[in-house]
């Protein structure tokens, strides 16, 4: 069974939009998400395959709605909870 990330050949997505002079990151938080993930993988909190898996098993509707780094942040918090680093409540500040 394919997961939602397996979009090759799928129809119905909007047109491809090319942004001129695109920056590496569009907001500071995106850069922080990128760096946080890199730090956690290098520390062995989880590995790259676990991270990719955590993105790919997002609920399909959430996956399609999220921007690229929103997907990353969702995967990071999923893994931090599953690895017992923090509870979901601690992670959301609730």
């Amino acid at each position: 069974m394919s997961r939602i990330n397996d979009v090759g050949g799928m129809v119905g997505f909007p047109a491809i939009v090319e942004e001129t002079d695109e920056p590496g990151f569009h907001a500071d938080w995106e850069a922080h998400v990128f760096a946080m993930n890199s730090a956690l993988i290098r520390r062995g909190v989880y590995n790259l395959d676990e991270f990719r898996d955590a993105v790919e098993r997002m609920p399909p509707a959430a996956y399609l709605e999220a921007s690229y780094y929103e997907k990353w942040f969702a995967a990071i918090t999923t893994l931090l909870a599953e690895k017992g680093v923090a509870t979901p409540e601690e992670l959301t500040g609730g």
Binding site: V7, V11, A15, I16, V17, E18, E19, H26, Y68
Partner: peptide, 13 residues
């Protein structure tokens, strides 16, 4: 860093 269009479902599909 890759451009956003490269990572988009639109291009990939």
């Amino acid at each position: 860093p890759s451009p956003t269009w490269y990572k988009s479902e639109a291009y990939r599909s």
